[in-house]
Design a protein around this nucleic acid. Structure first.
Lengths: 200, 200
DNA sequence: ATATTTACGTACCGTATGGTATTTTATTGT
DNA sequence: ACAATAAAATACCATACGGTACGTAAATAT
């Protein structure tokens, strides 16, 4: 129960898995994951390539580990926003801020970047992307049903459809930010997209 | 005024530029352009690499030429739809069909795929992408202003904002189709996104 | 006929990628 | 002390990429 299970017999590892994951995450976050090579990550983290493969098995393993960390560290905030059960408009505003204004999202989102280029991912990372995507939709759907029960949302469309819609619009906003589009226009686009849900 | 300007002195060229462009276009259309190598295109077209470089100068030159052809051949349809001056709802329906149902767009759109990965493009292709993007926005803006003058659109937002919004939503739909998402869901998402413009 | 011009394609260049074989080094168990 | 274990890093592997040097073939001009 110490840091990583206790050390066995051999030479102690000097590679700091946590720090390495953090550095890889920032690299994938800033650029497109497909454009960040293992070599580049090794350079950034000051780690040898075999050390990295010992720790993560493959590029797929590393990307999956990074994405898992990212989900726990960043995407969880979105889940938190949705479970605050605030009025619908307040929650949508919080989601809008997260997607269009949060400084950490200035270069986009690791999850949506990976999702956009999912055909380039290894199987494990791809599976996690699919699971996170389904989870995001499910999160929005649950929130919508809650809002409907609270008399806060009167939409006549299936929550499934709208949940998927919300995920796509958040993804679009984050993609626009990653592409360097003007923050004001990104927000305007997102607000327009939200009017069918929150009303004129 | 024959096919390509008249032949000069040397050995006549056997490479068919038109066919080669067509084959390259289909390859870029089916996959992500960044994942289609020059080697692959040479193989598909049955053309040697030097022949291809002789004709187009570089990968950037080839991609630019393909994109120009694609714009003239496919994107022009969108421009046509916008200049029919039909009622707003009819035009939006035609745009929706183009983006979400047209069989040729089943694997997405060369333009939006290149735009999504614009950081991977050479300078010439990048410039053309930017020009086409600006042109698409301008096309929607002109259409919106026309509809406003015709009393067909009462939106109080700047046409610039809505024009950019429309381009982004069309891009999103085509991106979803390229990702293999369910066609019905793509259409539902697009329709939801259009409600702020065409009304409930 | 011969020189000139131009396209042809094979075979290659340098660079980068994901991944590994191998030797050395640091630790624990007996 | 010494065997066993495991992580360290250098130096390498095969493959693929965009791009080109170069010798050859086919046309025109003189």
């Amino acid at each position: 129960m110490d840091e990583t299970s206790r050390q066995g017999r051999g030479r102690p590892r000097t590679l700091d898995i946590d720090t390495t994951l953090e550095i890889a995450m920032r690299a994938y976050w800033r650029a497109d994951p497909a454009d960040v090579s293992i070599n580049a990550i090794c350079g950034l983290a000051g780690v040898s390539k075999p050390a990295l493969y010992r720790a993560f098995g493959s590029e797929d393993g590393l990307m999956r580990a990074v994405l898992a960390r990212y989900a726990a560290e960043v995407l969880s905030e979105l889940r938190d926003i949705l479970s605050r059960d605030a009025p619908l408009r307040d929650t949508l505003e919080a989601v809008a801020r997260f997607a269009t204004e949060d400084a950490r999202m200035e270069t986009g989102c690791v999850f949506f970047k990976m999702r956009a280029g999912k055909h380039r991912l290894g199987p494990d990372t791809r599976d996690l992307v699919a699971a996170l995507d389904a989870g995001a939709v499910a999160g929005f759907v649950a929130w919508l049903n809650e809002r409907r029960a609270a008399g806060d949302w009167a939409g006549d469309l299936p929550a499934e459809t709208v949940g998927r819609y919300l995920v796509e619009q958040v993804g679009l906003a984050l993609q626009q930010r990653a592409a360097g589009e003007d923050s004001v226009q990104v927000r305007a686009t997102f607000d327009l997209a939200m009017t069918p849900i929150r009303g004129g």
